[in-house]
Design a protein around this nucleic acid. Sequence first.
DNA 1: GAGTGGTCTAGACCACCCT
DNA 2: GGGTGGTCTAGACCACTCA
Lengths: 248, 248
Amino acid sequence: MSIATQEFHPAEGRGSLSNQVRDHLRQRILRQEWESGSKIPSEFELVNDYQVARVTIRTALRSLEAQGLIDIRHGSGAYIANFGTSIRAGLQELRSISETIKEMGHRPGMVHRKSEIRPVMAGDAEKLQIDLGENILYLERAITADGKVVAFSYDTLNITGLSQDVIKKISSGSIFKALAMVEKHPVRAMSEIHAIKSAKIGWGASRPPQGLYLQLMQTHFLRDGTPIMTGSTYFVEGRFQFIIHRTI
Amino acid sequence: MSIATQEFHPAEGRGSLSNQVRDHLRQRILRQEWESGSKIPSEFELVNDYQVARVTIRTALRSLEAQGLIDIRHGSGAYIANFGTSIRAGLQELRSISETIKEMGHRPGMVHRKSEIRPVMAGDAEKLQIDLGENILYLERAITADGKVVAFSYDTLNITGLSQDVIKKISSGSIFKALAMVEKHPVRAMSEIHAIKSAKIGWGASRPPQGLYLQLMQTHFLRDGTPIMTGSTYFVEGRFQFIIHRTI
DNA sequence: GAGTGGTCTAGACCACCCT
DNA sequence: GGGTGGTCTAGACCACTCA
């Protein structure tokens, strides 16, 4: 009948309505409002609860299915999927890694190893659509869960137009949060996926001995299509479960 | 104005209308009806050309964007993306690998190394939702492009209810084609993605010396939700370009 | 300001599951 | 046959781009 655990208040500037519904439902799922394997309310019930069109509910549900959180069965309903305690992420969704780690019940962390402003290199200049010689911000970071490294990230940011204050925040804290402050939230990314084994990637004590990673080579874009960041994130094989729901 | 290169005839049994439109547009793109970087017709023009609703056109275009074939810019239009000659595949789309290789202008091939009927093992029984002791079809295949191996595949098929004839076809030719004959087309798959390095994977002369692969551990499902096949495909790192379009 | 893509709505019809 | 998901339509309004 009613929306449990917490009210739903569609808000300005929090993304599309369907994404707001999706995020609300995701929280309800991750807080275990429904047991694993059990059925969530039907689309018609959700339409009533959230007071939105059915297509909007469906878009949200499809997205949750792509994240591996629910399993939709034609003519029957949508069921909570099994997703133990491993940190699971749907690949087609652009989300903060730290946010995902937190939602999955682990303690996220971030260690900045290097952050420097220097002229852009040729390949990155093309990807960021800026002129050679312009300054960029280069970052090397490690992302941790419960103190253990899950990924190493090497990124190049287009900082033209950003204030010193914002650049400082990016260099020390969360990139996404700092960019959000100045309305420069990345909304999409094109990624290439590779397997890589190298002893040159990463640093520190919790660097995996075998040096095996799932590499996401990506460029992030703002709403207006401007590239804002390009680089590679190396996920330590086995510490992060990437899933993908494939359809015809 | 009109639909170039070839007529569009929506047909029964060829999937949803939006997928038919998507496939028709994909062919037009891959046949280079438009130059790289140039603009394709607007949504309103396509609505007129294909005589379908705008939402249907949009669904098709979004799918092509996810495949990395076009680049959609708000307020401006959809443009043909750059995708050289490398074999590129969008991960979220469930397609025949051979079909993708062919469409990208290469010569696909398949080498069956092993195919045997034997009792199912514990892990696979659970994934295929069948009882322990039931017979399955186990396959080991190599997928080639221009004679060079791009992937090794180890799969277990649920063959309950399949005729000897169909099983024989599966064992020697294309799984998808054989299953399509008996209306058992897989329509979706849940995949886990891993990086793996192992000398035990693959066989033959064109096995990569470094043994580095992108592993897709997947289970395929029929339209009614029944699992039909489970297994792993190991893509030789560097010979297949997997991309993914990520959005908020 | 005209053109274009982004999103949402309300309603319709169909296919499928279950009892 | 009633409930549920899958798809499509027609129309609306908004945000963005570009001349």
